[in-house]
Design a protein around this nucleic acid. Structure first.
Lengths: 168, 168
DNA sequence: GCAAAAGCCTACCGCGTTGGTAGGGATTGA
DNA sequence: TCAATCCCTACCAACGCGGTAGGCTTTTGC
């Protein structure tokens, strides 16, 4: 499960990308628009600021604002900054690697071989997608929804999106 | 993070696939070979038995044994049975779907759009890989290791395995 | 210069899940 | 009948998650 912290952060970033021209947006405004607990969001935006993604201004007319272009914000970094490494096994994390105590031989560990693929695909998507691309996809989805789904699957430079039909 | 339950289960299944001909294998034997706490593994194998993947026999010469062919065991099902749905968001799970309370519009939710791809790829790999294939990959890795890595990347009908170089 | 609006900082906390352990009962083969 | 093995119930400590509370600091507008 993706932690609430990361979910809220992504929503807030999309919101801020949309309101770039408006100057600083106060936390309360974002919280209200996206239905996020205000004080919790406060802590999240602070972390994003410390990560260099946002800037802040205090006092009336203050608030948060993107520091960099949406096209340079990689979503994997956002999640990593807020919720730590995404590796499904400690032995697959580069930034926080450590051996699985139970692993007899890492090179031939079945679990590791399997999850390495999962991890690679996850990173390909999350680090390969920027905030700008995500905003574009939301726009496309909104357009498709409004126009009665006439233009489905218009995912720009999009991921596989094949017709998978697995459970869960 | 993949829970220990699922990791242990996968290791045990690979072990059992290797020892199919030996008849039932006692829990203690698997636990010793794979460095898994015995009583914990006991509970796990019981669940796999209730899921129809294993059979058991009691008394001396008893133990656990695969009930079905390794080529019919899909690893996604193993993980689901032991650790529940794998969806990164509740609104992406088919078996345990429920709306995110904070989600204003599900169809245009940025987080959902993004994670849907991640989830699809995860399912493609985990539900698309069988126990038999996993055993084969372990063998291939062991062979490659022994032969001084002369035959790398021989992943049979394998996943992408491109040269990704992301952090974490 | 003062009030109000906003960000910043520290501390705390209930709850559920994870990763087990303990102990014993039920079966079954030698 | 003994011992190995599976089966079942109960319990439990530790940790992370998802917040909440309360106050301090900076800045703007009047």
């Amino acid at each position: 499960m993706l932690p609430m912290k990361s979910r809220y952060a992504l929503k807030a970033l999309v919101f801020l990308a949309r309101h770039q021209v408006d100057g600083p947006v106060p936390v309360a405004g974002i919280a209200a628009a996206e239905a996020i607990p205000t004080k919790f969001l406060e802590a999240i935006l602070l972390e994003l600021r410390n990560a260099g993604i946002l800037t802040s201004r205090r006092g009336p007319t203050g608030g948060y604002q993107l520091r960099v272009e949406p096209s340079t914000v990689h979503l994997g970094d956002v999640i990593r900054n807020l919720s730590g490494p995404m590796a499904p096994l400690p032995c697959l994390s580069k930034s926080a690697y450590h051996r699985c105590t139970e692993c007899v031989d890492e090179a031939t560990c079945a679990v590791r071989l399997l999850m390495a693929d999962v991890h690679a695909q996850t990173l390909r998507i999350l680090d390969g997608t920027t905030l700008a691309q995500l905003v574009a996809r939301v726009d496309a989805a909104a357009a498709g929804e409004a126009e009665g789904q006439s233009q489905r699957c218009r995912t720009p430079d999009g991921p596989v999106s094949g017709k998978l039909d697995f459970i869960d």
